[in-house]
Amino acid sequence: MSAFRTAPRASSRIQHPSDMFTNNPYAQGGWPNPQNPLSINNATWGKDSPPQPSVYGALPNAVPPSPPNILTFLFVSLNPTILNCTVVGPHAQKYFDVTTNSPNVGASTIFLKAGRPFAVVEWHNQPTVEIYGVAPRQAAARWLELSHDRAYQSMQVQGRWYAWVPRDKVISLFTVGPNPPELLARVTREPEMVKLEITAQAVQAGLLEPAVVATVLLQSGRNYG
């Protein structure tokens, strides 16, 4: 498998309101929100948010000197969206299931392959997310917090900050300062599936489950702001 390529430096120009992200902020990068294409994310940048300039203004420009060990997870059997699917990983083994209750679409639960739930997203007027033992129940728009310039979205896991950055049709996960950003994962949409590629280093750091939950939110097509 080919190594990740780091993203080129990009402008953090403030966009015209008509061009800004929707409540699913990565619609700007080619990920549409079919339910509400004109809505605007109203997430508040809180006092505990990471310093804004430390990520997007310093994206790495060079290809890493050695290719990382990359693990691929495929969200397949979309029924009809990522909110009902199976996640298979290396050796075509099932790792997770995503199940959304119907017809009200009140909550999405993500299960480990043994059938034990480890995360839930509640789709109310103000959607919430909880990852058991990792992230307490909180507003989804707070856990994936949009930057001031709407250029990236921050995620905190075990006291460390990370950033999801959309570029073309790829959403990449980077570390956040003080060191130079490091590419840890990326999400792409493939025909009839969604692909999450993540480094073994990120998995060892406990980022696999949060990355799976973030992928579900980012690819849900639903408003969570």
Rank of each mutant, 00 (worst) to 15 (best):
W45R: 03
M193T: 06
N179C: 01
G106M: 08
Q28V: 10
A205M: 12
F174K: 11
A211Y: 03
S77I: 03
S77M: 06
P32H: 08
P90I: 07
G30A: 00
A27E: 11
D168R: 15
N125S: 13
V134M: 05
P8A: 07
A114P: 00
S102Y: 09
L38M: 12
L78Q: 07
G115L: 06
V213P: 09
M155Q: 09
R9V: 10
A211C: 15
Q93H: 11
N33P: 05
P67R: 06
P8C: 05
G57H: 09
P80R: 04
Q35D: 10
A200G: 10
A151K: 15
C85V: 05
A185Y: 05
P17M: 04
P67F: 03
L173G: 05
P50A: 11
W45Q: 00
Y224W: 15
L173E: 07
S77R: 09
N84I: 03
P127I: 01
R160Q: 14
G46E: 14
T22Y: 04
R186T: 07
P65N: 14
T44D: 08
P34L: 04
N36K: 12
A27S: 15
Q204N: 13
W45V: 01
V121F: 02
A62P: 01
V121L: 10
S77G: 05
E130W: 03
V55G: 01
E145N: 12
A7D: 11
V55Y: 04
P32G: 02
F21R: 15
R222G: 00
P90D: 11
A141Q: 09
P37H: 12
Y224L: 01
V157F: 04
V98L: 00
Y26T: 09
P25D: 06
A163M: 06
H124K: 14
S2K: 04
R137Q: 12
L83T: 13
G206C: 11
E209W: 06
L208D: 02
P210G: 10
Q204R: 11
N223A: 11
H91F: 11
I171T: 10
N125I: 09
I40L: 13
R160L: 09
T100G: 01
A135Y: 02
S77Y: 10
I110V: 10
P64H: 03
P191Q: 10
P25I: 02
L218M: 15
K169W: 04
N101G: 09
Q93F: 08
N69H: 12
I110T: 00
A200V: 08
